[in-house]
């Protein structure tokens, strides 16, 4: 069903019987895609690995500098800060977002009244959330005189400049990511609909409580979907850029407290035109995401339940 499911099955599928292949037709149909693969996606992946071992500023030709870029990674304080910020963001916002998504999906029972309305209302933020307009809005509402503080004042709580305070700036971006729980919620809704009602009926007849049903039926049967959402949202969160960029005015401030990894990469590559180092950083990001995904797949053996 999903892209991840496909990858899981690819190894196991059996070869089709030998017959006449359509190589020439396939080449024609895949020509644009092959072009994209070599010039736009895989080609640049390889090129950025090579560039990662060079010093390159776009004007002079690239110069090999061995592992300099990678030793620089070890001592680059701002990079370490960027890693801390990004890890915090991923580790906090993804589980909270998915918990909200699952909770809401469970509340929206099959065939309940107003389902279409609720689904739309909760999904809309996912579509708007990545826009610059919403980042502009966030800058206002979490500012010192912003909406949040006005509302807090109504109930007599004194707020603060959420975005100008390095201690809370990242939290506002985490809130923004949680706010977009609608997309995983829709995936959960589709998954919940796949669970046969008779499982619950049988469990209820046997006297299982709602809580037991959740732990013994819903969670195991939904675990492949939870896993799928988890992998995707982690990959997605590592690449967050727009919101931190707009909210901090491109700096990652205050005091680098919102310096997302991609924002730092952008600064090195496209403000300082330090293309060699930026390429090394890009590969490091790829490795980190790959490692997280690999750990996820490994851990899946212990908690994801496949019915097939």
């Amino acid at each position: 069903m999903s892209a991840l499911g496909e990858l899981r099955h690819i190894r196991g599928s059996t070869r089709g019987s030998p017959r006449k292949r359509d190589n020439r037709a396939a080449l024609v149909f895949l020509l644009p895609w092959f072009g994209g693969l070599f010039f736009i996606t895989l080609g640049p992946v390889v090129a950025s690995l090579v560039l990662g071992f060079t010093d390159y500023n776009l004007i002079q030709p690239p110069e090999f500098n061995g592992v300099d870029n990678f030793t620089r990674v070890l001592s680059d304080e701002r990079l370490h800060q960027a890693l801390r910020v990004t890890f915090t963001y991923v580790v906090v916002s993804v589980p909270v977002q998915l918990a909200c998504a699952l909770g809401l999906a469970m509340l929206l029972d099959r065939g309940m009244r107003g389902m279409a309305f609720y689904r739309s209302a909760f999904y809309l933020p996912s579509l708007l959330g990545s826009s610059v307009a919403i980042a502009v809005l966030w800058r206002q509402i979490f500012g010192a005189d912003g909406l949040v503080n006005r509302l807090l004042a109504v109930v007599g709580i004194e707020g603060r400049g959420w975005i100008s305070d390095p201690g809370t700036a990242l939290s506002t971006l985490i809130v923004l990511n949680v706010w977009t729980f609608g997309a995983p919620m829709i995936i959960f809704l589709a998954g919940l609909r796949q669970i046969p009602v008779m499982y619950y009926e049988a469990a209820a007849t046997d006297g299982a409580s709602r809580w037991t049903q959740f732990w013994r039926i819903t969670l195991p049967l939904l675990s492949p979907i939870i896993f799928f959402n988890l992998v995707l949202q982690i990959i997605h969160a590592f690449q967050s850029f727009t919101q931190a960029f707009v909210v901090s005015g491109g700096t990652g401030g205050p005091s680098d407290s919102t310096l997302f990894y991609t924002l730092y990469l952008y600064q090195r590559g496209f403000n300082s035109f330090d293309m060699g180092y930026a390429s090394a950083l890009a590969w490091l990001l790829l490795m980190i995401i790959a490692a997280f995904t690999a750990v996820n797949f490994w851990a899946a053996k212990y908690w994801v339940f496949y019915d097939d």
Binding site: P44, V45, L265, G269, S279, W283
Partner: peptide, 8 residues
């Protein structure tokens, strides 16, 4: 991630 391919 687009960031891995953006420089080249």
């Amino acid at each position: 991630p687009i960031h891995v391919i953006i420089v080249p």
